[in-house]
């Protein structure tokens, strides 16, 4: 399912205009993205949580040339599915 199919489904199920369904779906994912961007994790009961982890800078190697390079510190995002969703998926 793509975002566009999700929008159509929401419009149809809730009898919303496609425009409102589109705004709603975009708002859901934009607000999650924004929260993560400003450093706040997102916890959604019955679905899962989007968390953040800091990675320190480290010395790595260019796998092609073997040359040493510094890999900058960065923040990465991870998703952990909630127990209920994990169980629903694995049936």
């Amino acid at each position: 399912m793509t975002k566009s199919a999700l929008i159509s489904l929401i419009a149809q199920q809730l009898k919303l205009s496609r425009k409102d369904a589109e705004t709603a779906v975009n708002t859901v994912f934009d607000s999650i993205g924004h929260s993560l961007e400003v450093g706040n994790r997102v916890e959604l009961r019955g679905f899962g949580s989007f968390g953040l982890k800091e990675r320190r800078s480290r010395e790595g190697r260019n796998p092609k040339t073997g040359e040493r390079v510094m890999v900058d510190a960065k923040r990465v995002l991870f998703f952990k599915a909630g127990k209920a969703l994990r169980e629903r998926v694995d049936h």
Binding site: G33, L36, E37, V38, G39, R41, E54, R75, V76
Partner: peptide, 8 residues
């Protein structure tokens, strides 16, 4: 967006 965002 996350990588370049504000501290946790």
């Amino acid at each position: 967006r996350v990588r370049d965002g504000e501290p946790i």
